[in-house]
Simulated assay, not measured.
Amino acid sequence: MSRKFAAEIFGTFWLVFGGCGSAVISAAFPEAGIGLLGVSLAFGLTVVTAAYAVGHISGGHFNPAVTIGLWAGGRFPTREILPYIVAQVIGGIFAAYILLSIASGNPDFDLVKNGLAVNGFGEASPGGFSMMAGLITETLLTAIFLIVILGATDKRSAAGFAPLAIGLALTLIHLISIPVTNTSVNPARSLGPALVVGGVALQQLWLFWLAPIVGAVAGSTIYRFVFADNPSNTVSASS
């Protein structure tokens, strides 16, 4: 269990540091020029690389919603839910504070202005989208994300390609939803930056725990009862 715990800390750290780091640097320093596509790809690449690196140890969740969704889909034991979520939260918070320490090394960086890629709705939404728009977006995209994860890791799927499918799905999710909420679909990704920034980011954090978890349970339930053959046909996300 200690190896799984460490793997989930590492994977979540890499996801938040790599994904949010690309967004923060791109926003603070436009000359970096990676834009929406680059940030979306960065989030996808973190999942692909972390899943290949340590997914064989922990299953490569790196996301409390994924852990709960896999449990709802009959893929994950109840006794390991809390340790996994604790590890993911630690990884996300650690990444946010390390990112802050690096970004603050440039005199042009402003935490209030640049915000460490926090998630938000209403005035905190990059595109000014409403709370309801954010709630629908985060719930729907997390549900689809879980369907992709469960499908890509089904034993009937091609072996060895699951991390690529999952990473590409996360890239597409970001392309769709960065303008709406700055994209969460991952409570640990939202928590770390929100704790650093505080204010509205913390006040709105509830949505970025509630919607991904509800979406993950919905997506896993759909896959389990509509698409799955039987529970023996499933494997870990690292396969």
Rank of each mutant, 00 (worst) to 15 (best):
S2H: 07
A7R: 01
E8P: 07
E8I: 01
I9M: 08
G11M: 07
G11F: 10
G11P: 06
T12L: 07
T12A: 07
L15H: 00
L15E: 03
V16R: 02
G19M: 03
A23G: 14
V24F: 12
I25V: 13
F29S: 07
E31D: 11
A32R: 00
I34N: 02
G35S: 04
L41V: 12
L45K: 10
T46I: 00
V47S: 09
V47W: 07
G55T: 11
H56S: 14
I57F: 01
G59H: 11
F62E: 00
N63W: 00
T67G: 06
T67K: 01
I68P: 00
R75F: 04
P77L: 09
P77F: 08
V89S: 06
I93C: 05
A95T: 00
L99T: 00
L100H: 02
S101T: 08
G105T: 09
P107M: 09
D108C: 00
D108Y: 13
K113A: 15
L116H: 09
V118R: 01
N119L: 06
G120H: 07
F121G: 03
G122M: 13
A124V: 14
A124K: 01
S125I: 00
P126F: 00
G127I: 07
F129A: 12
A133C: 09
G134P: 07
G134T: 01
I136F: 14
L141K: 06
T142D: 10
F145C: 03
L146Q: 03
L146M: 15
V148D: 05
G151H: 10
T153R: 10
T153S: 15
D154C: 12
G160R: 09
L164W: 14
I166T: 08
L168W: 06
A169P: 04
A169E: 12
L170M: 10
L170P: 05
T171Y: 13
T171N: 12
H174N: 13
H174L: 12
I176Y: 12
P179V: 01
T181Y: 10
N182W: 07
N182Q: 13
N182T: 06
T183I: 08
V185T: 03
N186H: 06
P187Y: 08
A188M: 09
R189V: 05
R189W: 04
S190A: 15
V196L: 15
V197F: 13
V197A: 14
L202I: 08
W206A: 06
W206Q: 05
W209C: 00
P212T: 06
P212D: 02
I213A: 02
T221Y: 13
F227P: 04
A228S: 14
P231N: 14
P231G: 11
S232T: 14
V235I: 09
A237C: 09
S238A: 15
